[in-house]
Design a protein around this nucleic acid. Sequence first.
DNA 1: ATCCTTATGTAACTTTTGATACACATTGTT
DNA 2: AACAATGTGTATCAAAAGTTACATAAGGAT
Lengths: 211, 211
Amino acid sequence: MQKPTSEIFTTLQEFTEPSLRDELLNAGTLISAGAGDMLIREGQYLDFLPLVINGLIRVYRNNDDDREVLLYYVQPGQTCMMSLSSAYFDYHSAANGIAVEPTQLLILPSRLISEWQLKYPSWNRFILSTYKLRYDELLKSFGNVVFKPINARLQEYLKNYSTSQQTRTIPLSHQTLANELGTTRVVVSRILKDMEKTNIVKLSRGSITLR
Amino acid sequence: MQKPTSEIFTTLQEFTEPSLRDELLNAGTLISAGAGDMLIREGQYLDFLPLVINGLIRVYRNNDDDREVLLYYVQPGQTCMMSLSSAYFDYHSAANGIAVEPTQLLILPSRLISEWQLKYPSWNRFILSTYKLRYDELLKSFGNVVFKPINARLQEYLKNYSTSQQTRTIPLSHQTLANELGTTRVVVSRILKDMEKTNIVKLSRGSITLR
DNA sequence: ATCCTTATGTAACTTTTGATACACATTGTT
DNA sequence: AACAATGTGTATCAAAAGTTACATAAGGAT
């Protein structure tokens, strides 16, 4: 819990107006979360907006059954769309957020969101592009789920992970992958084994390496 | 192609500011579309925003293959989220829009969207709630596709249609339903036949009646 | 070393979904 | 009436995906 310094703007480059930057420094609070920390739960009262400075947040929702649906990851420079909706519409979170890495967050009081929207074009654009980004992502996933078989989706997931994290080794268990893709562990194991046989990946305990 | 009258506000009730209403009347153009008219195609240049006054627009996208993905329907009082994104981000439509009924549209020049956003709170709220609505809808569909079998989704689709259109008879062919749900005609026919055997529906040529 | 937890491999089976093919029915048109 | 276009019924087969069950392995904790 501390005051942010202008270092945050190495991540938050898109906020160009000097007075917006001042306001961010004055009104924001910097907090840290460790890997695995739950930041927000479904139904919880929510009157602040988090901006990720560094680290990574996983946002997901629990289904009517018990399975979970991955909504998106919040990366440095991004904010959580569900928090935005809470701020504008009902002040209760419709999703869970958990830090998957040590993460620093800039916390802003909700009331400022709409105020700044009117005063700062770059802020307004940020809000809208957050919605658009998440919609486009979700739409892509949707299309994949409807039209692509799981093996293709799994392979694509691994490739995306690899390129975005700059590593050929994906440190996720089969069960975790199953959760990400909305299927079961056995199915993931089966597909991965096939992929190993065709020399696409190499499997180890707790990780998968792309060739 | 005509000037709108204040009648439009029986549909567009949420725009409360008198001066916003004036602007809508001055800047807007009313156009009519017949059932089946294509209003916008993927990739097409788009510098206006349509508000549906009455009727219904189906917005969908073509997959990499040839199958289509239903994005959403635009109902009276709503606008097309994809058009909004076009207006803010790149001026090209990322989807197709077709009138499924005779439809009246209020057409607004894109440049006004962001201008009004700053001047009129109800307009700003309209923009944001459009994004939120479509995201929430898509998320729901996504969860259904991932976790529910097609028969359940079909049944739910029919129920929703029935309640929203206030009729127990759904005038859609099996092929049309297959397109809506992202599956094939044979699958729909099979499921519907089962539903008829278990007395959930009654089938006729071109329509399905819920019991 | 023993035990516990988590992770993985895999067989056997069922269910769901999709693909193909063809028959037949309905409706409107000429 | 003949025809074409569209819609529906259904069989057969193949593939994809989920379920259950059990064995084994790897790593950490005591």
